[in-house]
Design a binder for these strands. Structure first.
Lengths: 215, 215
DNA sequence: GGATATGTGTGGTCAGACCACTGGAAAAGG
DNA sequence: CCTTTTCCAGTGGTCTGACCACACATATCC
């Protein structure tokens, strides 16, 4: 019979929804306790109790984070912090956003630009010593085109760029975009063309790496 | 006493969570009925009934979409499709993802690359007739640096690129990233330098536009 | 006609009930 | 003592029903 009194210790704004507040507190909790990827977070019931909120509200917050790919939940075990790469988010946004042909073309175009950007960064950031190791590494493996670019994106050493590229690549595959030439050769020619126009340095290193990977 | 039988008409995979399935069906519904920004979607209770799922599951799906900024809910009125620009998403991800200095640097770097990319696209896609109108347009307004790049991004006519740039710019502002030179002049020099290395065409048009906007 | 009261529908939240599954503890077996 | 089996407490997954707060349309009253 106790009065509803105050829920969610020190709620800041009056019109903040509970689940949003939970997301916030969750973030604080993760930061404060120094939780890292793979760590387990408290159970839904415990969170519900600790945060003075209903379990359904806690679930709304968790489900939102899950859809964003920030956490992972395993029935019977618990909820864990995830090594998020944005995949989930992509899959969702893709179906909502990509509706017209123009948008699809944008994906391909953007993806290409980023590929070349990564190439540029990779070339710029890789100094000689590492370059040798890279050469060996690439020689040992026999990359498909996709894998090649993936490696390049990694080498660019810009995690954000890599993530964006991944997202776009997922689009590309999942939606079977065929806006640009499907034939590999023509595709390569197109990338070459892009690279060419954007500076000799890029092109040079690009061809060098490309050759190494196909020999 | 009826057997649980089948929920969610024709559930595809056995281990698909209900709320994810609801998100999917919601998308189908939106597409099928041709719903646009601002339109109202069915109430939670009606969705619950139509999709053969509990209201709590429907809410989990809706809350996730809300956190993503794809829908907007107004108590007492209903749930509406939103003019999403990724803001929500940004705000959330930023607090989760941007933890170390490297990530911050990546933001700045990626943003710069995209700026130059847009510059390239804008220059390439703008033919003469429109170019004149652009000139007038830019002359009429007195852009700040940020606005200048924003306009460029628009002119690149790649909506996806524009959106990504927007996100990165939000990061940049919201978190007061100071990784790169804070002084404008130095910043400009850096962008110039980037542009330079990436081809004369870009640089040329870039300076031209830039001059037009600062006269 | 204008102001007021009322009613219905909507989202917001909670509590409680099951179910399905996991992992480890306890019991059984050797 | 060690292995195997059984069992159960804990956890996420889902549904139901109950209120509340609010917005809007309608009816009512003056």
């Amino acid at each position: 019979m106790e009065k509803v009194s105050e829920r969610l210790v020190s709620k800041p704004e009056k019109n903040t929804k509970v689940y949003v507040e939970i997301v916030r507190q969750l973030r604080e909790m993760i930061e404060k306790d120094g939780l890292k990827t793979g760590d387990k977070i408290p159970s839904e019931r415990e969170l519900s109790e600790r945060l003075n909120a209903g379990r359904s509200s806690v679930r709304e917050a968790l489900r939102a984070l899950e859809l964003l790919g920030l956490i992972e939940t395993r029935r019977g075990e618990g909820t864990f912090i995830r090594d998020f790469r944005g995949n989930q988010l992509v899959q969702l946004l893709s179906t909502f956003i990509l509706q017209d042909e123009k948008a699809k073309f944008d994906v391909v175009e953007t993806r290409n630009m980023i590929e070349v950007d990564c190439l540029y960064l990779a070339a710029e950031k890789f100094h000689n010593e590492e370059f040798e190791r890279l050469k060996v590494w690439i020689d040992e493996h026999n990359f498909k085109d996709e894998e090649f670019f993936k490696k390049i994106a990694e080498l660019a050493d810009n995690h954000l760029f890599y993530r964006i590229w991944n997202i776009l690549n997922d689009y590309y595959n999942a939606l079977q975009l065929k806006v640009l030439p499907a034939e590999k050769e023509e595709y390569h020619r197109l990338v070459d063309s892009l690279a060419t126009r954007r500076g000799e340095l890029i092109l040079e290193r690009y061809r060098m790496l490309r050759k190494m990977s196909t020999d």
